[in-house]
Simulated assay, not measured.
Amino acid sequence: MAGKVLFETTKLYNILNQYGRQSRLAESNYLCLIDARPAESYTFSHIITARNAKWDSEGWFITPTDVEFESIRYIIVYDSSTHSLLESGPAIDCAESLEKASRFPILILIGGYEKFSALYPFLSTQKILYTIRELESIKPYPVEILPGQLYMGDYMQATNPQILKDLKLKALVNVSDECSLMFKKANCTVLHFRIADSVEADLFVSFERMRGFIDSHLSTSSSVMIFSNHGISRCSALTMAFLMHNLKYTLKEAWNHIQQCKANMRPNRGFVQQLSNWELQTIGQRVTDISEPNY
């Protein structure tokens, strides 16, 4: 039995916004999101792609027969406001029924729909059925690195006015090859580094200026997004550098944090070496062995 664990809202937000060529929500073995609230609450509004739980006449959860739970990486259930595994309620009941069918722990959303929809109202919907094409065409949001404060994404996300509005973004760190006039229209302050995604490129010289820029905006409760062309290499290196300085993370800790937020992040080898140098400068020693295959 895989068990059940509580799950933070920011982690669900990031799971919903993973993508490669298209949204990962189109993958049949990626995510099953179950809304355990009453049908009328679900119909009024629910988290995007969630299915409503069904119950028999005695109040027992009916396991869907069209889902291969054993092969699904993330099975997440929520009700209105569960906060503890010691509570009783539909989310707990649902999770206990599903434990036997999954290889992975069943994840119970902390705070349920009330908390998630308050933080991410733009990820709520009344839509119930999706075609594969519709799932593939879902436009992901930037991943959340520090809840409500720091985001990381790509150029298309940074130039999407709706995303800037939804995330209340007022400051951007641009390490893409482009600079759009849209940023001025959106009233965003932009720090732009013209640095190629090349192993020879010097990103290290940008770390201190980037850190100061982000600090100045976070101190005024303004959220910030770091982005590059594809949201994979340059922006992830800059984001790690920020975490290493401000949270005193080692390179390994920063790497693991960013990888949990965005699974396909990958700084190029030159940037990894520069991050190792930054680790030496920020904490006084090289703790992380970048010769390990993970890096």
Rank of each mutant, 00 (worst) to 15 (best):
Val175Tyr: 03
Tyr249His: 03
Lys168Tyr: 09
Thr250Trp: 05
Val190Thr: 12
Glu178His: 12
Lys252Arg: 15
Ala241Lys: 11
Ile290Thr: 01
Gly284Ser: 01
Phe204Glu: 02
Ala196Arg: 02
Leu172Met: 06
Leu167Ile: 10
Asn160His: 12
Gln273Gly: 09
Tyr155Asn: 09
Ala158Glu: 00
Ala237Cys: 14
Met156Asn: 14
Met240Trp: 00
Lys262Val: 12
His192Tyr: 15
Leu181Ser: 15
Trp278Cys: 11
Leu167Pro: 05
Thr282Phe: 08
Ser291Tyr: 07
Gln260Leu: 13
Thr189Trp: 01
Gln281Tyr: 04
His245Arg: 08
Lys170Asn: 15
Ser222Lys: 12
His192Ser: 08
Asp202His: 11
Lys262Arg: 15
Glu279Tyr: 03
Ser221Leu: 13
His257Pro: 01
Phe271Glu: 05
Val190Gln: 04
Met240Ser: 02
Gln259Trp: 04
Ser219His: 08
Thr288Met: 09
Arg266Pro: 01
Ile290Gly: 01
Ala158Phe: 06
Phe204Pro: 01
Ser236Phe: 00
Arg194Asn: 15
Phe204Lys: 01
Trp255Glu: 02
Asp166Pro: 10
Val190Trp: 10
Leu243Ser: 07
Gly284Glu: 00
Asn229His: 01
Ala186Val: 04
Ser276Val: 11
Met244Thr: 05
Cys179Leu: 15
Phe213Val: 07
Asn264Lys: 14
Val287Gly: 03
Cys261Ala: 12
Ile283Gly: 07
Ser228Ala: 13
Asp154Ala: 14
Pro161Met: 00
Leu247Gly: 10
Val199Cys: 08
Met244Ile: 13
Val272Cys: 11
Phe207Asn: 01
Met156Ile: 15
Thr282Leu: 02
Phe242Tyr: 11
Asp154Gln: 13
Arg209Ser: 06
Ser291Thr: 10
Arg194Cys: 15
Ser206Cys: 14
Ala237Ser: 13
Ser180Asp: 10
Ser276Thr: 09
Thr282His: 02
Ser228Cys: 14
Lys262Ala: 04
His257Gln: 12
His192Cys: 11
Cys235Val: 03
Leu251Phe: 05
Gln260Asp: 15
Ser176Arg: 04
Lys252Tyr: 15
Pro267Thr: 08
Ile232Gly: 05
Gly270Trp: 05
Val199Ile: 13
His217Thr: 06
Leu238Val: 00
Gly270Ala: 05
Leu169Asp: 00
Glu253Gln: 15
Ser228Met: 07
